[in-house]
């Protein structure tokens, strides 16, 4: 009897130990990122202090005030417009990529056609072309079309960056849904189009949400192409705006950390909101087939 209790307690202890270990590990993993976040709330002197000051001794919002132009000596950085540009570009391109990805994923999951495997692989491989290899040709073509330094120009690029992976995930997800469901609906008088929206789309929602998060994070954080294709406040995004803190001779670490927080927070909120779908969506998407 007591042996059973003992083994139960020892199991509990073990489990608690494991949980503690997991939390400890995750916190350690986050330390570099947390350092940046903490540094956003301290004066420059404390960031450069030797020995290091871990927890801000004099927490301050000065760094944020400065980049919004409320400080004394620094010219404002147009964070507001960068933020709006980033948001518009990332959201629009994510939505378009999802629409295109759903059409494509549905085609791959539900139809047999010639060259299927080749087209699928081709889409993936074109995504593997490194951004630096594309940057100049895209720039020259975009400038001929007059869409340099516009949100549209960047949206087009991001859509194509995200389409292949989106198709991949959504394809896998549609395959999980038994064909019989949609067929039954069609027997009941639905068109294929209606059957898709009533039956298959709701079931695939988690997978679509997962694809959406990945697409959003890619567009939100992309730098190499955005730094080439944007110039002014009409299209510059937040990651490109980070460079505003590096002049030829100085880097403003405190300001950069504050900006980093502004970049991270929306991504964090979004991920937290759809986190449940993310795991569920990835579970089936893409693997089976």
């Amino acid at each position: 009897m007591s042996a059973v209790v003992e083994s139960q307690t020892s199991k509990q202890v073990k489990r608690a130990g494991l949980t503690a270990l997991a939390f400890l590990l995750m916190v350690v993993m986050c330390v570099p990122g947390l350092w940046v976040v903490l540094s956003a709330f301290r004066p420059n002197g404390e960031i450069l202090a030797k020995p290091p000051v871990w927890v801000p001794e004099n927490p301050t919002f000065d760094n944020f005030r400065k980049i919004f132009g409320l400080g004394t000596d620094q010219v404002a950085i147009p964070v507001g417009s960068y933020f709006m540009n980033s948001l518009i570009i990332a959201l629009t391109s994510t939505l378009i990529a999802l629409a295109i990805g759903m059409a494509g994923g549905y085609a791959f999951a539900r139809y047999r056609f010639r060259g299927k495997g080749g087209i699928f692989l081709g889409l993936m491989l074109f995504r593997a072309v490194p951004g630096i290899a594309l940057s100049l040709p895209v720039f020259i073509i975009w400038s001929k079309l007059g869409i340099i330094d516009t949100k549209l120009g960047l949206i087009i690029v991001y859509v194509s960056l995200n389409v292949p992976f989106t198709i991949w995930l959504i394809d896998g997800f549609f395959r999980q849904i038994p064909l019989s469901l949609s067929e039954a609906a069609q027997v009941d008088g639905c068109t294929r189009w209606q059957a898709f929206w009533k039956i298959e789309f709701p079931l695939a929602r988690s997978g679509i949400a997962a694809a959406g998060v990945f697409a959003f994070l890619t567009s939100w954080n992309e730098f190499a192409l955005a730094s080439q294709l944007t110039r002014s406040t009409t299209s510059k995004t937040l990651p490109v705006g980070l460079l505003d803190f590096t002049a030829q001779f100085t880097i403003d670490w405190a300001g950069m950390c504050a900006m980093a927080v502004i970049i991270i927070v929306p991504a964090l909120i979004l991920t937290f909101l759809v986190q449940k779908h993310l795991i569920a969506g990835l579970t089936f998407g893409g693997v089976k087939g």
Binding site: V75, T246, A247
Partner: peptide, 10 residues
């Protein structure tokens, strides 16, 4: 050109 030292002029 941007950066703290250059901005005062602007």
């Amino acid at each position: 050109i941007g950066g703290a030292q250059y901005e005062k002029l602007y």
